[in-house]
Structure formats: structure tokens, C-alpha cells
């Protein structure tokens, strides 16, 4: 459980760094997530569509950022979680997930924190930005 008395605006959540994304990662995630769009797993299809190679599912990085949240707080405390997909994540990218408490506030009779989220690759290129609201009790 989170302790409200120790949480301050500006606090950072422990970073989550994932291994480089491989073709195997994408094949597994296609099966695990049910997203069988060939753009992520079939290089011939991706080339026909004008891309140099397959690229990662946006929802893979969103799941990675979700791990940052559920490592920090129990999922039952999660009230909302949203992301904007800013750039395509490529094979070989090493996704690093970070979060920061941007607001401590009261809503629906419970104390809550707002978390600003970023997923970036090994060069610091931002791939996703997002926000989560977590109840503190």
C-alpha cells in the first residue's frame, strides 16, 4: 500500500528498463495480446506498406509502462491510465519507463496522485507519453 504522508509532488517512481525488442518479443506479444496485425510480425507485409521493417505494437510499450505502475502500487488502486503514442518503436529499441508524481489531490472522497509517464528508447527518443491516476489509502 502507498503511504500518503511520504508521497510528494515531484517524486519519481522506480524506473523500469526492458530488454531490447526483438522479433521474438513481437511474435510473443502478437500471440499474448491477440494483436495479429501483420505489420508487427511479417516483414514482407511491412515493406509492402512502405516501412523498412516490422515495428513494435504500441500496446507493448503501454504494457511496459503499466508494469512501472503496478510495481509501485497495487492495481486495485489504479483509477485510470492513458497514453499517447508519439513515435514508432523499432526492433532493437530498449524501452525505459519513467514516472513522476505531478499532483496529489482529492477526488471521489479519496486521496489520489496523478503520475506523468514517459517511455523512451536508449537514445532518449520519446515513444509514449501518458498519465495515470492512482488512489492512495
Amino acid at each position: 500500500m502507498l503511504d500518503l504522508s511520504t508521497i510528494r509532488e515531484g517524486d519519481s517512481l522506480p524506473t523500469v528498463v526492458k530488454p531490447p525488442i526483438s522479433r521474438s518479443t513481437l511474435a510473443l506479444f502478437a500471440g499474448g495480446s491477440g494483436d495479429h496485425n501483420p505489420i508487427h510480425i511479417d516483414i514482407d507485409y511491412a515493406k509492402q506498406a512502405g516501412f523498412d521493417d516490422v515495428f513494435a505494437h504500441g500496446m507493448l510499450s503501454m504494457a511496459y509502462l503499466g508494469q512501472l505502475l503496478t510495481n509501485w502500487a497495487p492495481q486495485q488502486a489504479l483509477r485510470s491510465y492513458s497514453v499517447r503514442f508519439r513515435a514508432i518503436t523499432h526492433i532493437g529499441d530498449e524501452i525505459s519507463c519513467s514516472g513522476r508524481v505531478s499532483e496529489v489531490f482529492q477526488e471521489n472522497d479519496e486521496p489520489r496522485v496523478r503520475i506523468e509517464l514517459t517511455a523512451a528508447n536508449q537514445n532518449g527518443d520519446v515513444k509514449l507519453i501518458g498519465e495515470a491516476v492512482i488512489a492512495v489509502y
Binding site: I39, A49, Q76, R79, Y81, S82, V83, R84, F85
Partner: peptide, 17 residues
């Protein structure tokens, strides 16, 4: 056209597990 489709934003609101 599926090959032109990208995911722009995604939001979840949670009520119960």
C-alpha cells in the same frame, strides 16, 4: 486500410477488477 492504421491514443478507466 489496415496497413495505414496506427494507434494514436489509448485510455482505460477502471471500476472493478
Amino acid at each position: 486500410d489496415l496497413s495505414r492504421l496506427l494507434h494514436g491514443e489509448q485510455k482505460f478507466d477502471y471500476i472493478a477488477p
